[in-house]
Amino acid sequence: MIRVVLPAHLRNLARAESEVRIDVQGQVTQRSVLDALEARYPMLRGTIRDHVTQRRRPFVRFFACEQDLSHELPDTPLPEPVATGAEPFMVVGAMAGG
């Protein structure tokens, strides 16, 4: 069970709690977590990653275990505490704008 924390706008869009729990098959990576998240909440498609390129949107960041994982490759394994559910994978909207 993977714990994912969503920012307020996406939580509202998905009509979900701040933290959602999802099952991920196979290796736990950014890609596999986001694939599972979007499978459960299809309305999130295109909001975290570009529909076509699958690249992270510029003002979205991925944090976990007190690390910024935003620039990791999508298939790099996430830290063990995320894979075991001890720590959440955090989708964060950048602090910007007005």
């Binding site: 920012p7 706008h9 996406l10 869009l13 309305m43 295109g46 909001t47 975290i48 570009d50 949107r57 003002f59 979205v60 909207g93 950048a94 910007a96 704008g97």
Partner: peptide, 8 residues
């Protein structure tokens, strides 16, 4: 739409 999460 928005700068963070794109188009809906």
């Amino acid at each position: 739409s928005g700068g963070w999460f794109g188009q809906l």
